[in-house]
């Protein structure tokens, strides 16, 4: 299996490293509009680097295109890769709009290629274990759920694209869509969304969002997301159930912690940097799963439709933030709408 990655920011770089660990898979080429980025990775992995996906497709014989571009560029690149007959793996969020998401799903269906989306949180062991415990029903009916994600500050990237709301959708569409996907996977579909955010109230780099979710099952959810500096990136969840609680806090659930004496990176001097070294990292696991599905001709766990359902929740939250009204999800699932 020969893979080409387009977009060599944080996630493209992580995926490139992951492919080295997966047997039967070869990182064959990389593409990025920024010359220094593509040259650095091309040299590191001994592959050719291209400026664009079109150039890469013209020159290379690929099985898979892995798209790690900013959200607003997903649609065009997925359509181009699919039209070239390549299987497509695309970073989350699926797209900036429902229309784009549907078009991507349709493009892959028409081309007969497999489409997978990188909702990697489902491959993090603490989230996966929580899913297993809730599925097993050992805690009884879930009553309420809370999640937190963020606190690592405002993300910086190519052309400051996270700061462009019409490109990224802010943290609701980019960050806590992880939790929307995780919660929907664990608790089923969402009925109603009400949300408030700092957007429009303050400087847009101080983004903080609180979302109220009502699931079809009746579960009441509270999703908190932050692009402020809150002592470093972290995640939390709490499932409150009839027969007990299930809680996680990445600030305490760390197998390794280090403290820098000098300011040499995120956090600054003396700040704890929690880590969880694992035998297999979640990014490698998600790509391994996608490749295994291709080999066996199976649908991956996170299809375009699954990613679209998470996108619907995020878009509903954005609509609620903008209008101040609750938004009812009308079961708009899948390509059929």
């Amino acid at each position: 299996m020969r893979v080409g990655i387009v977009g060599l920011g944080t996630m493209g770089t992580v995926h490139a490293a992951s492919y080295q660990e997966i047997p039967g898979c070869q990182l064959a080429a990389v593409a990025d509009i920024q010359q220094d980025r593509r040259e650095r990775l091309a040299q590191k992995y001994g592959v050719r680097g291209y400026a664009t996906l079109a150039d890469m497709l013209a020159e290379e014989d690929l099985d898979i295109v892995d798209i790690c571009l900013p959200t607003h560029l997903h649609r065009d690149h997925v359509e181009m890769a699919a039209a070239a007959g390549k299987h497509v793996f695309c970073e989350k969020p699926l797209a900036r709009s429902r229309e784009d998401g549907l078009a991507m799903i349709e493009a892959c269906r028409k081309a007969g290629v497999t489409f997978g989306v990188g909702h990697v949180v489902r491959f993090f062991p603490e989230f996966r274990r929580a899913w297993e415990i809730i599925q097993a029903g050992e805690l009884g009916q879930v009553g309420t759920v809370y999640t937190f994600r963020g606190g690592g500050g405002f993300p910086t990237a190519w052309q400051d694209w996270y700061a462009h709301y019409h490109w990224s959708g802010g943290l609701t569409l980019d960050l806590i869509i992880h939790d929307f996907d995780f919660l929907r996977w664990t608790l089923g579909d969402v009925e109603r969304v009400y949300a408030k955010g700092t957007r429009g109230r303050d400087y847009n780099r101080l983004e903080h969002v609180l979302v109220s979710l009502r699931f079809k099952s009746g579960v009441i959810g509270n999703v908190e997301g932050s692009w402020l500096n809150l002592g470093g990136f972290g995640t939390k969840f709490e499932f409150a159930c009839e027969r007990g609680l299930l809680t996680h806090d990445s600030k305490t659930a760390a197998g390794f912690r280090s403290y820098r004496q000098k300011d040499s990176g995120p956090g600054g001097p003396g700040v704890a940097v929690p880590e969880n070294p694992l035998d297999k990292n979640p990014y490698t696991l998600q790509l391994e799963h996608f490749l295994e599905c291709l080999r066996q001709g199976k649908e991956p766990m996170i299809t375009g439709e699954e990613a679209l359902a998470a996108l619907d929740i995020a878009l509903a939250a954005l609509e609620s933030i903008a209008t101040g009204k609750p938004v009812v999800l009308r079961g708009e699932r899948g390509v059929e709408g």
Partner: peptide, 25 residues
């Protein structure tokens, strides 16, 4: 009712959620 979630708008331009649930075992 034994659980809930309130979302509040405040007069100073901030917002807030309150979870008042009797959800501790």
């Amino acid at each position: 009712e034994d659980c809930g979630l309130l979302t509040l708008e405040l007069s100073n331009g901030a917002f807030m959620t309150i979870d008042p649930s009797w959800s501790r075992p």
